[in-house]
């Protein structure tokens, strides 16, 4: 509470000075910023747009566009956010600001799960010699993009590049170790029906799958041995093959389901408990 009051007083003092500051444009800017800080994002955008409209000398083009982008981002409207960040980037007054805006675009891409795009922009930034000093930041956001893209091992490697004991490295490593291999689950079930289910801990389903496959396999083989070709084809096709295929599908489904649980636990932790910078 005390902290909140301190913060409020801080804002208050900043804005009081701002309110009496120089120009009309500056006042308009401060008002818009104030709305942004009070999380009135829709109205903040209106005021930033007003600022842009009356800003004949384009003094605020970069900042207003960038703030509009941030407002849209806060409303989870990432397509619009990116549109305005791109406008801001065009008007960016320095290389630093260009980089800053690019990172914002990357973060939006991560959040809207267009991670391919995020990774491509990151590669472009890395290839640009003017951002040679921003390596750590590029690796950090690439790590995030890879985590959202389910490539936990690669993500861990990126965080490791920044620092060996990077906390996100440990998290990504941990999740990577827990994840079941979908290919392995499927392959096991190809060889022994139900084995993939056992691998993912679904014992009842695995046992039942095995039982059905043994039964239908036995009946099919028996029919062929007894020269009842029609019966053999029918049971083999309609039942044995159906349950065999179902068994493989199930192994895959269980592996994916379990992985989703693990991944979601990880993502939940990252969103709620992790204290570093997030997209």
């Amino acid at each position: 509470m005390i902290f909140a009051i301190k913060r409020a007083t801080l804002f208050l003092s900043i804005f009081t000075t701002a309110a009496f500051s120089q120009t009309a444009l500056q006042q308009q800017h401060d008002y818009a910023i104030c709305l942004y800080n009070s999380e009135e994002y829709f109205d903040a955008i209106t005021e930033f747009k007003r600022l842009l409209f009356f800003d004949g000398k384009n003094e605020f083009t970069f900042e207003a566009n960038s703030m509009i982008g941030k407002s849209y981002k806060a409303g989870a409207k990432f397509d619009d956010a990116i549109r305005y960040f791109v406008l801001a980037q065009i008007a960016a007054p320095s290389k630093d600001k260009v980089f800053e805006t690019q990172i914002e675009i990357i973060r939006c891409n991560i959040l809207r799960r267009t991670t391919d795009r995020a990774l491509r922009i990151l590669s472009d930034l890395e290839a640009d010699p003017s951002f040679i000093n921003n390596k750590a930041e590029i690796n950090y956001w690439r790590g995030w993009a890879l985590m959202f893209d389910d490539r936990w091992k690669d993500a861990a490697a990126e965080f490791k590049k920044i620092e060996k004991a990077h906390p996100l490295n440990a998290i990504a490593e941990n999740i990577n170790e827990q994840i079941y291999s979908v290919t392995l689950a499927k392959s096991l079930s190809y060889i022994i029906p139900g084995a993939g289910q056992f691998y993912t801990g679904h014992y009842f389903s695995g046992a039942l799958s095995l039982a059905w496959n043994i039964l239908w396999g036995y009946l099919t083989v028996n029919a062929f041995i007894g020269n009842r070709i029609f019966d053999g084809l029918m049971v083999g096709n309609l039942l044995w093959f159906r349950f065999y295929r179902g068994n493989i599908q199930n192994a895959e489904k269980f592996a994916l389901e379990e992985n989703l649980k693990i991944i979601n636990n990880g993502l939940k932790y990252l969103q709620n408990e992790y204290n570093g910078e997030k997209p």
Partner: peptide, 12 residues
Amino acid sequence: WEKKDVSYQRTA
């Protein structure tokens, strides 16, 4: 529209 937090989690 209002402020909206997107969940990092996937839907099943």
